[in-house]
Amino acid sequence: MKERILLCGNEAIGEGAIQAGCQFYAGYPITPQNELTAYMARRMNEEGRVFIQSESEISAINMVFGASLAGARAMTSSSSPGISLKQEGISYLVGCELPAVIINIMRGGPGLGNIAPSQADYFQATKGGGHGDYHTIVLAPSSVEEAFSLTFLAFDLADLYRNPVIILGDGVLGQMMEPVSQIQNSRPKVKNYSKDWILNGCRGRNPRIIRSLLLGEGELEKHNQRLQKKFKEIKEKEVRFEALYLEDADFILVSYGTVSRICKAVVSNLRSLGKKIGLIRPVSLWPFPEEIIKKTAKRLKGILVVEMSAGQMLEDVKISVEGACPVYFYGRMGGGVPTEEEIFKQVIAL
């Protein structure tokens, strides 16, 4: 019988990073992501790599900044309040075009909030919680298996585009355990990316400078234009989503992460009742899957967006739909998790 590896989401993310060749991890305690920090403390040392528990989330992201510019795959993780502290660092990473992976296991907010799951950091992650025009790639797993694979992918995308990538999980995903079939003895091959830009001492080359301060006339604007070109390319190439029953659906749910699993149950339930209902689950929250939603909306009676928030992805759905059909919303805030029955009733009522 094949060995089944059972991990919680936080650990799966950690193992995803380890197998992706993450050389440097800095973290700080915060619920509900503590299992990840603990996992990395043990596993990174086992692998002979660098683990640091830093004095704050701010110093952790700046340590990642240093490790990344020195050429290492680097990651930090936290939960909502801690991610707020990292926003300046994330903006610097984008400005300096440095790869990094940032994990946010979201919890209830605002403020200290609670430690229940939430999706209320969607805006912060996808619209940029830091300063300046920038984007991070944002990937949202909905299973422990996907938490592993998307973290692995995040390191490739970060290196490919030299840009930070955020994994947006939540307290449920982080804490629940599921088998992760992808973890076998043979590890997936880690791709190499050109590191001809890093700072490792100028032996045999001219000295390099990595900075985001550009004071010269028009210099920063040119830099921004280059970044926008990068974001355009990412939008064209890195959209990821899952779609169910779009062929005949006349109504769909749009939801991501943990909530999308609840919505899948509602969809199958309603379909068994003969309702032509479908689902779109964005996997990349940025770049947002606008095209599929825009195309599908034209033949729909309506869309119900379901989130653990006051409605944030809702706005991106509305932008994509451009009024082609009504867009409704159902959400729970402050760590509340919508139940299958609640969503079911919402759909029936529409």
Binding site: F65, Y92, C96, G201
Partner: peptide, 8 residues
Amino acid sequence: DFDTTESA
């Protein structure tokens, strides 16, 4: 005239 970065 050596590798330099600038931190927050």
